[in-house]
Nucleic acid binder design. Structure first.
Length: 493
RNA sequence: GGCGCCAUCGUCUAUCGGUUAGGACAUCGCCCUUUCAAGGCGGAAAGACGGGUUCGAUUCCCGUUGGCGCUGCCA
């Protein structure tokens, strides 16, 4: 039997990093075993699902280099791959359950259910459907339907015994039937709930391994019960740990950026996010030797996926919920950026959508890239860092104050620098010559370059820390550099 | 509250009964150095607690505590 896995996102919001994490494991496991990986859209919540969200999810997964063998965009032998388009199948299966007596119609109103739950909570009982409609006769059901009372279909659950199943990661799990609720399978709008649609589709699509988040453990008995009612063999179940906020709660956008789009917009390379997610799956993927292979994003993500897949073992996934550690991701991002050749970095910037200021000529870009790329961790750090090359800073007298030198000394230092730079001819205006001139000038006044250089940084870049000064001045050119020194000098008066 | 899952440095983890408990991020220090980074070197930092089992437990079992999840006509 060939391995078939799936990821089944619900298009109700921004593409979540947790979806990518689950998708990645499913993809790698399928590839490792020469099987297929399917993308299925679970859009049964008609009030929250959007076309836009679905598009963003697919696009985000593709951005990370993932691809699927069957899905709503490419079709496949078990389509459609969008649950909203599979209504007939659910209706048939619900009819079967009803006919077999494994499910029942329920006409309870939302108000009654709410009252019931409040009462149960007050009595310290677990909130459960109380079976109100379970005893309705066929006659009564028909009457209510004729009267046009809306209904749902609920699952019948054994009252005794326990559901025992094996989880690939956690071993034997036992949950008593009496703790399992009579879950709604078909909503009053005619759409199935997750539980029904999921089981029917997984079976129809011949999924062999259901690898999903831990949050589904509690409802696994319902799913297994459905497989039993239908007479189907259930797939292997593997419940993954949930990604966490730093405070260990389930990763949420209230506490952390969870959208893949956010990380892309911030300029995290796709390969960095992919590498990070991979490292959460298996510690062997947390390997610095992997960084830097490939000459394009496409190739880099492909090689990572290949590596992750080659030794993917579900059993090695550790079950403690990992904190989504953004500092580590940032570091990885910086590593991936830095291991590129400057020309590749330029291309990455371009793909990310960076718009170069006019003042920086195409010929200068590689030089800028070389000095900037080792000082950033994400691409959005780049703009602020090179901004001074395009626009002169507005420095104040206060900015120029130094700890080690008096104002008079700073003044002299700037003056001396100008005098040292003026004689340099245009042809020798490069970082080495500039550095030498500035060092010599400082020495001639009895202090080291280190003593005054902070003032120079502020004069040229507007900030005490920036890109290497001499390089910055070379790129700015002699005229503009001297102009900035002179402005700074004026501000000191 | 009920049910379930989980538990090694701050974080991600290695260890699959015997280790000076290893690595990475973060952090601290030193070196390098025109600032800041990057890079190099080094430091500090962990088996939640209590019982068993065993010659020997981080590792196996039980309990406690803690964290998390589920408890919807959301997934």
């Amino acid at each position: 039997m060939t391995v078939r896995t799936r990821v089944a996102p619900s298009p109700t919001g921004d593409p979540h990093v947790g979806t990518a994490y689950v998708a990645l494991i499913n993809l790698c496991f399928a590839r490792k075993h020469g099987g297929q990986f399917i993308l299925r859209v679970e859009d049964t919540d008609r009030t929250r699902s959007t076309q836009q969200s679905e598009g963003a999810i697919l696009e985000s997964l593709r951005w990370l280099g993932m691809s699927w063998d069957e899905g709503p965009d490419i079709g496949g032998p078990h389509g459609p791959y969008r649950q909203s388009e599979r209504g007939e199948s659910y209706q048939e299966h619900v009819a079967q359950l009803l006919a077999q007596g494994n499910a029942f119609k329920c006409f309870c109103t939302a108000e009654r259910l709410e009252e019931m739950r409040v009462a149960q909570r007050a009595a310290h009982q677990p909130p459960h459907y109380d079976g109100h409609c379970l005893t309705l006769t066929a006659q009564e059901v028909t009457e209510k339907e004729i009267a046009g009372i809306p209904s749902v279909v609920r699952l019948k659950v054994p009252s005794e015994g326990a559901c025992v199943f094996d989880d690939v990661l956690r071993g034997r799990i036992e949950i008593e039937w009496k703790t399992v609720d009579m879950q709604v399978l078909l909503k009053s709008d005619g759409f199935p709930t997750y539980h029904l649609a999921n089981v029917v589709d997984d079976h129809m699509m011949e999924i062999t391994h259901v690898i999903r988040g831990e949050e589904w453990i509690s409802s696994a008995p319902k799913h297994l019960l459905l497989y039993r009612y239908f007479g189907w063999n259930p797939p292997q179940l593997c419940h993954l740990p949930l990604l966490r906020n730093p405070d260990k709660s389930k990763l949420s956008k209230r506490k952390n950026p969870t959208s893949i789009l956010y990380y892309r917009e911030q300029g995290y390379p796709a390969e960095a996010l992919l590498h990070f997610l991979g490292s959460l799956i298996d510690a062997r993927n947390d390997d610095q030797a992997l960084i830097g292979h490939g000459h394009s994003t496409r190739e880099r993500t492909r090689l990572l996926l290949e590596y992750f897949s080659a030794h993917c073992e579900l059993e090695r996934i550790s079950v403690g919920g990992p904190v989504f550690d953004i500092p580590k991701l940032r570091w990885l991002s910086g590593q991936w950026i830095r291991r590129q050749a400057p020309s590749e970095f330029l291309q990455s910037l371009d793909e990310w959508g960076y718009a170069w200021p006019r003042a920086i000529s195409p010929q200068q870009r590689e030089h800028v890239a070389r000095i900037a790329m080792e000082r950033i961790e994400v691409l959005s750090d780049f703009g602020p860092l090179v901004e001074f090359l395009a626009e002169a800073p507005d420095v104040s007298r206060h900015d120029m104050a130094l700890e080690k030198l008096s104002e008079a000394q700073v003044h002299a230092g700037l003056q001396g620098a100008i005098e040292a730079l003026v004689p340099l001819d245009g042809a020798s205006w490069n970082q080495a010559a500039i550095g030498e001139a500035l060092k010599k000038s400082a020495a001639s006044m009895g202090f080291t370059l280190k003593d005054v250089v902070r003032a120079f940084y502020i004069a040229v870049t507007g900030k005490p820390t920036s890109l290497p000064l001499f390089d910055g001045m070379e790129i700015l050119g002699k005229e503009e550099s001297l102009r900035r020194f002179e402005i700074a000098l004026e501000r000191l008066h």
